[in-house]
Design a protein around this nucleic acid. Structure first.
Lengths: 345, 345
DNA sequence: CCGTTTATGCTCAAGTTGAGCATAGCTGAG
DNA sequence: CTCAGCTATGCTCAACTTGAGCATAAACGG
């Protein structure tokens, strides 16, 4: 049984005959995908590759590069190399997310293309716009996951589109035998319906549930049977290539969890910042509003920051003290991070 | 910069010329490794494969199998299949840990063997000894990591062997230019010397530090330069094949972290158990002693268990009520787990 | 110079946590 | 048969943490 990913069964990709002759002819390749995240103007953004001009309408994708053990000693150094080549970006913080290897995730099984196992990475950086990015653009991650944006309260898409359509999907369960967790319960836990609380870290679980219910474009594209019935209806969020939206969901969930116990938030901040700017960045990542006074008590009390002595004028009100990340905190506390909990919405 | 893994630089494997002709001829293969963990008699054990009788003295390894996308639709189903074939074990809970792909991690670069990228999994199970395991045996994980066993207080190996030898290694730093974090600080944080606290989750960081300092057998085997000087001295813990001890370290760290926010501990328990048995299992995993009364308050208060109504006699004292895991907790709390913190040692 | 706006300091009640005292109910020795 | 010894379990209390809100400070624009 699974705790993290509440599913009825392992997610199915395409390709139902277990072996196809075409696939048998192909080998295995290793790819690297990066979810490169920054925050600009209080918007969490991710670097996406727009499709070539001639391939009309192909969806956005995450940066991708093959891994060749011949050229790179480690997976991470391989990643850094081609990200730099493709985007001009020198990655700072990077961590491995997950390895995605389901059949059909990359090429259709009837293609003779090799199976691609892809190792997803999360990278955090400051969005310096002075990049010579040929194809890459920064795009808000809430573009792909509008239901994750709680900064202006509960997003309306939850009421308007997600709840009714998931209820429909729940209804469709009748025929299925008793499951460890009913669709109803899974939906309730993932999306916080019927009084359950919203857990901002369950980004992947929510996406996978929507996929399973056929409510995201990728599910229709992958031709899951469940999806045919309403394939004419508008789908939720903006789709991405292959399983890149799944990778991005994993990345968002990871960042949201991680800033609570590691000071990674400072990877996204300039060297000097006000406490409110820091709060805004945390809120951009997490979603909900935080109690301002308690946020500063928390951040200062944890020793995460120290005042630079300077102030920032023109805040619209009283000037704000500037702070910087206090690196020594890494030596003092076992798990320093912005231990915030969501406040009132 | 890295928060989780405090290192001077990326770990170096063997094979210094960046491309060898032999390696260039070989391809890439995908392997799966499993750290299968159970707790028997209050001992955390892991399933290891002893070497073939004729390959005298080869170290233990974790179960390993190749991944073929032709035969298995997902990485996890591939894992379950060959684990079952090799050990007779039907895995219950399994989660992906990390993908290990450094060059030299599996074969020496001058072999013509293909590069193996290995996806490490963590599996939790009850140790039913009724298995027809041909090669596999259960072995305490503290065998490989004696410094992680704090159940009887601070392990002596820290004072006797680790501290003096790491101090020596710190001394050797003089020549190296200023680093983001000094060896001294890294050692202090990882091992809790000089008044720093012991963080039971930093299993991997500690192993990697010892590796870097040349104090574990694998480092000598991999011929890191730093290690030559004391290659004649006894090394810490029992080594494993390839980088399997690194994978196991990752697994231990992950379990230790995970039981605090997911009820995975119950994967290791029989259906019915006393609260003290549960506590012993948690302690086997985490190390330090827990305050008994507070532990029960915590576990009962969190709604993780419910009494079965039965009692267990012959406890050596008053009979103990039997409990079972309360699955409904998964539907009630966003992140249920044994939120223990280490008590007095 | 005053209303508006943002920054920052402070308080208070409620909840959580660490530690220990006290009682309950077996078992085995004598 | 009884009591010492042992483990289980209940309960209290002080210290600390957290959620929420009141109050004051200091700029800015008119």
């Amino acid at each position: 049984m699974s705790y993290g990913q509440l599913r009825e069964s392992e997610p199915r990709s395409i390709g139902e005959p277990d072996i196809t002759a075409a696939a048998a002819a192909a080998g295995v390749e290793i790819g690297l995908n990066a979810a490169i995240v920054a925050v600009t103007d209080n918007e969490p953004v991710v670097l996406v590759i727009r499709s070539e001009p001639d391939s009309a309408g192909a969806p956005d994708g995450l940066p991708f590069g093959p891994f060749s053990p011949l050229q790179h000693r480690t997976l991470e150094s391989g990643l850094r190399a081609w990200v730099h080549r493709q985007t001009g970006l020198e990655l700072g913080y990077a961590e491995q997310l997950y390895t995605f290897g389901d059949r059909g995730r990359h090429a259709r099984p009837d293609d003779a293309a090799p199976h691609v196992v892809s190792i997803g990475y999360l990278a955090l950086t400051q969005a310096k716009s002075s990049l010579d990015m040929q194809h890459g653009v920064w795009r808000s991650w809430y573009h792909y996951f509008p239901w994750e944006d709680w900064r202006r309260g509960r997003p309306e898409i939850l009421e308007n589109a997600i709840e009714p359509r998931l209820k429909e999907w729940i209804e469709g369960q009748r025929s299925i035998p008793a499951l460890p967790v009913s669709r109803q319960e899974r939906v309730r836990i993932c999306f916080g319906f019927d009084g359950a609380s919203w857990d901002e870290e369950k980004v992947l679980e929510r996406y996978e549930l929507l996929y399973e219910a056929g409510l995201v474009d990728e599910a229709v594209r992958d031709e899951r049977e469940a999806t045919r019935q309403w394939s004419e209806r508008p789908r939720l969020g903006v789709p991405m290539r292959f399983d890149h939206r799944r990778i991005l969901a994993t990345a968002i969930g990871r960042v949201r969890a991680k800033i609570k116990y590691r000071p990674v938030i400072f990877e996204l901040m300039p060297d000097e910042f006000t406490l409110f700017e820091l709060q805004r960045t945390v809120e951009a990542i997490l979603g909900p509003h935080l109690h301002k006074q308690n946020f500063r008590r928390l951040v200062e009390g944890a020793g995460l920051v120290e005042p630079t002595g300077e102030v920032k004028m023109r805040t619209g009100g009283r000037p704000a003290k500037l702070y910087r990340f206090r690196r020594e905190v890494l030596l003092e506390r076992p798990a320093p991070g912005v231990r915030v909990k969501p406040g009132k919405v």
